[in-house]
């Protein structure tokens, strides 16, 4: 995708065509975890956002506005029309902005996916909030919950202004986010999940907070298929720690095994909590990821 900013483009993260396609898509959570409060669209728009659900007998005290008068005329008995009330769902975007994401196009892809999920949430009148986690111990940068097309510009501005760098591991970042977050819905965690820590705890906390977990592991091409050989000193981008390896070529088999194990472990953690998990290569085309991969996996409809 072109990174050039054109005057007629709504955002630098993707072009208008992609944006218009995203506007017609919506998130498809497995469980419908919503806030108790009724959604804005139910009270304000007057039925355009309500769907008929069932009938029930009228009982005194019911709002007479919901009596189906046509049935009353035919049967001479009042029946109340019941509507499926759509309640508000909170879409929480948690972006890992630590140094480990500053490789190849990892963080760009992270921003693009966050923007895409955000757009889907906003245009479907979900409440969308975003958190960017950089440094361990520090408060994450936050986009306050917002909704509607009007908030799209705010979301894009928030995402494009995130500075990459820091040493915050994803498990600590999730804890930091949950300190300030309130509301049920979906937590979309965008990270490389390469952490020395225990990943089970943040997933448990997200689940306990009533958030369905959408885990997206973003890895660079050099992480998917590293081509290294000989004797090397590997330097950790976050901690600066080093690790000497010899005959690196011999280790690549083991590396792939461990990467597959991590992927399987994360997928299992998400699945156990009725969530979803997907690993993507930052080198893959965005259109392929958004309109093919996520659709096929049932993440979006």
């Amino acid at each position: 995708m072109s990174q050039e900013t054109h005057s007629n483009q709504f955002t630098t993260l993707f072009d208008n065509k992609t944006l218009s396609m995203l506007e017609r898509m919506r998130l498809n959570p497995t469980r419908r975890l919503t806030n108790r409060s009724r959604g804005e669209h139910l009270s304000g728009k007057g039925g355009t956002s309500t769907e008929f659900s069932d009938y029930r007998n009228y009982v005194p005290g019911d709002d007479v506005r919901y009596i189906d008068w046509n049935i009353f005329a035919r049967l001479n008995r009042p029946y109340m029309k019941q509507y499926q009330h759509e309640e508000e769902m909170h879409v929480v975007l948690i972006l890992d902005a630590s140094s480990s994401m500053d490789y190849e196009d990892k963080f760009l892809r992270c921003q693009q996916l966050a923007a895409a999920f955000g757009v889907m949430g906003l245009l479907n009148f979900e409440k969308v909030s975003a958190y960017s986690c950089n440094n361990k111990g520090g408060l994450p940068a936050k986009l306050s919950p917002c909704t509607g097309r009007i908030s799209m510009k705010r979301l894009f501005d928030f995402l494009t202004k995130i500075e990459v760098g820091g040493d915050s591991p994803i498990e600590v970042a999730v804890e930091d986010v949950l300190r300030s977050h309130r509301g049920r819905g979906i937590a979309i965690v965008l990270s490389d999940f390469e952490s020395f820590g225990d990943l089970q705890r943040p997933f448990n906390m997200l689940y306990s907070a009533g958030l369905e977990i959408f885990g997206v592991q973003i890895l660079g091409s050099s992480e998917m298929n590293p081509e290294i050989n000989g004797d090397l000193r590997l330097v950790d981008s976050e901690s600066g720690q080093t690790l000497d390896i010899s005959s690196a070529g011999d280790l690549l088999g083991l590396y792939h095994e461990h990467r597959a194990l991590l992927e399987a472990h994360l997928a299992m953690l998400c699945r156990q909590r009725s969530g979803r998990f997907l690993t993507i290569d930052s080198g893959d085309l965005l259109e392929h990821v958004l309109f093919d991969l996520f659709r096929r996996k049932g993440w979006v409809i």
Binding site: S195, F196, D231, R233, L234, S237, S239, T242, S246
Partner: peptide
Amino acid sequence: RPHKSVPSLALWSQVINDRRVNSPFQKFKR
């Protein structure tokens, strides 16, 4: 050794630990 910066050593540490455990000729191979 040439330095190579990687996003995280988390996976590589596991790999090295695993090889040390599984390979009796680790020193030889090194």
